[in-house]
Amino acid sequence: MQTTGRDTGGTVPLQLTPREREVLPLVLRGLENKEIAAELGIAEQSVKAHVSALLQKFDVPNRAALAETATRLELTGVLGVDRGWISQLFRQAEPQICITRGPEFRYEAVNEAFRRATGYRPVIGRTMRETFPELEGQGVFERVERVYATGEAAILHERTKRWDRGNGIEARAVDLVIQPLRDEDGSVNGVISFAVDVTDSVTRPKRAGPKRRPSSRRNRT
């Protein structure tokens, strides 16, 4: 049964309708209501109602926060969660998550994994370029600018980047997803990035296959 009332000291399971499950991944892709309506073949007003219901069920104030929590749930495959846990989800998520706003990409929010991976340097209120000068020339800024300009998400797999994690600059391999954030009118006003450090899996030596036994046959002349 779907529960929509306030918490009363206990836990309230999060349950989505079939249509909400269709709308949610499209929100994560950064689509605006009109695009979601066209994708699903339903009225734009219906999309607005479904998005509003999702915001209420996830107990979050806006689409950016919805993307943060829902992406984590999508990664873990969780279908029912405690609302008290949702409020901690963004900060505790293992992927390095950050939100920047405006064409200068000024940091608005980061989670603990991001802070740890960047040496706990001050970031909130600062621009991406002034916070990470060591990323200049590595294509990171240009990729984020492209997502902001085009409104199209970018997915990068096992890309090696060099930055200071608190003990000097080092090379790390990361999987990175960059998604646009939009105003109510659909215009892009920021980006949200999800990064996972895959250095260990990339650099781990591959297991050698079984050695072939020498042939018992003699070479015939």
Rank of each mutant, 00 (worst) to 15 (best):
R115G: 07
T160D: 12
T150M: 06
Q138C: 05
Y120R: 12
F141N: 10
A117R: 08
T127A: 07
V123T: 09
A113Q: 03
R116A: 15
I155A: 15
W163F: 14
E130L: 09
V147Q: 03
E112I: 14
Y148W: 15
T131W: 01
E112H: 15
A109H: 06
T127H: 06
P122W: 03
L135C: 01
F114P: 03
R126H: 12
R146D: 00
E145G: 06
R116G: 12
T160I: 14
E134H: 04
R146P: 11
N111C: 08
L156H: 11
T118A: 09
E158V: 15
A149V: 01
R162D: 05
Y120V: 10
R106M: 10
V140F: 00
V110E: 05
W163L: 12
R146C: 03
Y120N: 08
E142P: 12
V140L: 07
A113V: 11
F141L: 06
L156Q: 13
N111K: 06
L156S: 13
M128Q: 07
M128S: 03
V144E: 15
R162W: 02
E152K: 06
H157V: 05
R126D: 08
L135F: 09
G125S: 03
T150N: 05
F132D: 04
G125W: 05
A153L: 11
V140C: 09
W163T: 02
I155D: 10
P133W: 01
R116L: 13
E158M: 15
I124R: 01
E142S: 12
R115E: 05
A113H: 10
V123R: 00
R129H: 08
T160G: 12
F141V: 04
E145S: 07
K161E: 11
R126E: 09
E108A: 15
Y120Q: 08
A154N: 12
I155M: 15
L156T: 05
R143Y: 09
Q138K: 07
Y120A: 12
E108D: 14
G137S: 09
T118Y: 08
G125I: 01
P133N: 06
K161Y: 11
G119E: 04
L156G: 07
Y120M: 13
R143G: 10
F141D: 02
R159T: 00
T131H: 07
Y107W: 01
E152L: 12
F132M: 03
N111M: 08
A154K: 14
G119L: 08
R116H: 14
A117E: 01
P133V: 02
R129Y: 00
T118S: 09
G125A: 00
F114N: 04
R106F: 10
D164F: 06
R126G: 06
L135V: 04
A154P: 03
R143H: 11
R116D: 14
T160M: 12
H157D: 00
V144S: 10
A113L: 13
T131L: 07
P133E: 01
N111Y: 01
R129T: 06
W163E: 05
A109I: 12
P122T: 01
F141S: 02
V123W: 02
F114Q: 04
R115Q: 03
E152T: 01
E134N: 03
V144N: 11
E112Y: 13
W163K: 07
E112V: 13
